[in-house]
């Protein structure tokens, strides 16, 4: 758990300075912030992996991860290099929606076998990616895509105040065209 927390702090320290917002793409920002893979793992004896039930330790670590930012995505790979089409689609949608990188954290389940298994049980959801907003499970890729298409996701993200401000988004978009 401690190590997971370390990862989280590292991930946040990688957030670029606010003035850099206007200079690069929103998606880029989202990518960069969490680009660093978790170099550490949840510490647990290997025997724990064989257990069916989620240990308290793992549950607490996942609680922490889920609460580490308003928007949390458990994915395969990193936002910069997703290792699966579904994780890629999900991160792209969050970028398109204009999620504020400061309010976002991603966890790479491929770096951590216990997280990979544990998160499925924690959410009672069999697949990765998994999206949490304000500690509440939103869904996997199918749901993210359909909510994106229906406009529900934009509404939810707006209500939760996790989007970049309009001028930041406009600046990012304008910058994107120049590149």
């Amino acid at each position: 758990m401690r190590r997971l927390q370390t990862f989280f702090h590292e991930s946040h320290s990688a957030t670029p300075h606010p003035t850099m917002f206007s200079r690069s793409l929103v998606t880029r920002q989202l990518l960069r912030q969490t680009a660093r893979p978790a170099t550490t793992r949840l510490s647990a004896p290997p025997s724990l992996l064989l257990r069916r039930l989620l240990s308290d330790q793992t549950r607490q670590a996942i609680d922490k991860a889920v609460g580490s930012a308003p928007v949390v995505l458990f994915m395969k790979g990193t936002p910069e290099t997703p290792q699966c089409g579904f994780s890629r689609a999900s991160i792209q949608i969050l970028g398109m929606q204009g999620v504020d990188p400061d309010k976002f954290a991603a966890f790479n389940v491929l770096e951590d076998p216990e997280l990979r298994q544990g998160i499925k049980e924690y959410s009672d959801w069999p697949t990765i990616p998994q999206l949490y907003i304000d500690k509440e499970f939103v869904g996997g890729c199918d749901i993210i895509v359909s909510m994106h298409q229906s406009g529900e996701l934009a509404k939810l993200l707006d209500e939760k105040r996790v989007l970049l401000k309009e001028e930041q988004q406009a600046a990012a978009a304008a910058d994107g065209k120049e590149q």
Partner: peptide, 16 residues
């Protein structure tokens, strides 16, 4: 069926 997350109807990266 939805083809989201696939490339030309094939999912990529599932061997992970």
């Amino acid at each position: 069926p939805s083809m989201e997350g696939t490339t030309d109807g094939k999912v990529v990266g599932v061997d992970q």
